[in-house]
């Protein structure tokens, strides 16, 4: 029982990060029907930023907010350089474009920095545990859960209470009609990228605190997790993305603790397989977004 509670908290810690990533991907999907496979590049850029700032003697208290700013800037730049040109293009084109950005950013880092991973110090407290009775809780998990909650509440407020949020939800609901109703797609799309940058920035802080390394492919794993979580949740649905992230985190933790020794390396493969199966039996994801194709 105690073990299960611990695993759930561990899973929530992981899942919180996934939820933030997935939400950023779902927001972009909502406004332009693009699955952003370049979302992980925000983490990559954040990772190198952290590495360089550490090398210049800054600490996490300075680095954390900087990472968010950098992630937002990167998101906006990527939108400006690549995605704005394929708005409204067929799905195939948009998918390949986002993969193109993914590979290109990766190649730029290989070329101008190095193909090797670089380490930077992780904050000491992430290994601390609190003991409550038999329960030992990782401070890090609690910090992630708290930060996720705060960020999600902030996002919720933004989406429910601001003009931008209403436009964004309207666009996610029905893009063509939203545009006819006078919602300025340019502003909403750019805003969506800013929001996805903020969410990725918060996720990056915790992802990097745990991994403590920067490399050209640092964003691959978070990107895959984010995309998978968003898919579990049904892509267009924002609350689905959050739920998908949490689900993914919990499933991973439960798998790792239950897989027989020696096969733990297959966790990601099994997760992938499960999600492929989910698609076979429920192509629309866990949460169904009603999407009527207009004819």
């Amino acid at each position: 029982m105690i073990e299960l509670i611990q695993q759930i908290i561990d899973g929530l810690g992981r899942g919180g990060i996934y939820a933030l990533l997935a939400l950023g991907i779902a927001v972009i999907f909502g406004v332009m029907h693009l699955i952003n496979f370049a979302h992980g590049e925000l983490i990559t850029v954040s990772a190198y930023t952290s590495y360089w700032l550490f090398a210049s003697g800054f600490n996490w208290w300075f680095i954390a907010p900087t990472v968010i700013v950098v992630a937002v800037l990167t998101a906006v730049i990527i939108e400006f350089v690549a995605f704005r040109w394929v708005r409204g293009a067929p799905d195939f084109t948009m998918l390949m474009t986002s993969f193109g950005v993914h590979f290109l950013v990766q190649a730029l880092f290989v070329m101008y920095v190095s193909a090797n991973f670089r380490q930077f110090p992780r904050p000491g407290w992430i290994f601390d545990t609190w003991r409550i009775g038999d329960l030992s809780l990782e401070v890090f998990d609690l910090a992630v859960i708290a930060a996720t909650l705060v960020t999600l509440l902030g996002t919720y407020w933004l989406l429910q209470r601001t003009m931008f949020g209403v436009s964004l939800r309207a666009a996610a609901e029905d893009f063509d009609t939203a545009r006819l109703m006078g919602i300025r797609s340019n502003r909403v799309i750019r805003g969506a990228f800013v929001l996805s940058g903020v969410l990725a920035g918060v996720a990056a802080i915790f992802w990097l605190m745990r991994s403590g390394q920067a490399g050209p492919t640092a964003g691959l794993n978070p990107m895959l997790k984010g995309v998978l979580a968003a898919l579990i949740g049904g892509l267009g649905s924002l609350s689905g993305a959050v739920l998908g992230g949490i689900t993914l985190g919990l499933v991973e933790v439960l798998l790792i603790s239950r897989l027989p020794g020696g096969t733990a390396g297959l966790t990601d493969g099994i997760v992938f397989l499960l999600i492929a199966l989910l698609f076979v039996f429920r192509p629309q994801g866990l949460i169904t977004v009603r999407r009527v194709e207009r004819v």
């Binding site: 394929v86 474009t97 193109g100 990766q106």
Partner: peptide, 8 residues
Amino acid sequence: GGAMLGFM
């Protein structure tokens, strides 16, 4: 990467 992106 550039060829893929540029062509798309």
